[in-house]
Nucleic acid binder design. Sequence first.
DNA 1: ATAACATTTTTATAATTCTAGATATATGGA
DNA 2: TCCATATATCTAGAATTATAAAAATGTTAT
Lengths: 117, 117
Amino acid sequence: MESEQAIRALAALAQSTRLSVFRLLVKHEPNGLAAGEIARAIAVPQNTMSAHLAILARAGLVVSERKSRSIIYRADLAAFQNLTSFMVEDCCGGHAEQCAPSAACKPVRGRRAKITA
Amino acid sequence: MESEQAIRALAALAQSTRLSVFRLLVKHEPNGLAAGEIARAIAVPQNTMSAHLAILARAGLVVSERKSRSIIYRADLAAFQNLTSFMVEDCCGGHAEQCAPSAACKPVRGRRAKITA
DNA sequence: ATAACATTTTTATAATTCTAGATATATGGA
DNA sequence: TCCATATATCTAGAATTATAAAAATGTTAT
């Protein structure tokens, strides 16, 4: 992952409405939720929500698919995992065993995340 | 973790200088690095860096400790892990086994992160 | 006490982002 | 075709944030 993309993803999540949306979509995996339902659930005007969803999509954290009149949004969990792995890359200079009793350094049980699905 | 604190942490990381600092400090766990060394390593004026470090500290992502004239900064890996756990809380409505082949939903092997060290 | 060093605080300007009203586009049904 | 529904785009004012120069604070050694 490139730094620029990581910044985009973090900036997308660093806003209360969008963080709520992402967490809501994580809960609704793997079915997803329509844009209108999301706006209603979080009580935000639909055009404002549309702008927020576009930012999350551009950051790669959610994916969308049209289904009849609605557009269904889903959280991209693999993208999220790539992001967190990027942030703790080369933890403790590559000697994760020196780290505190935190699993942060080995987010995918030791191997480097490379999930692209 | 509260949403407000998560926003603070994400906003802290959503800036290129600060993201570089955090990743640098993750690499240097568990020893940490002095503020001046960080500024030099990332080639940023020391007062600018000081402001960025303060933001990371206020977000709880780094901790500092004076050591003689220098102030040593360290990444707080447990705080980072609490953050990522918060973001995928109740993943797939609590049925993580329904999720994609991504470990994002089980960041601490199933149990909920509660590390405070 | 004075000087040198390490870091933080104050301050101001420039740039970016949030929000939502108005409007536009796309889909499905009568 | 005409209408209702669902979502996106345009736009602009309000609020927030990044940056770094200047000055202040705290620490160690002589």
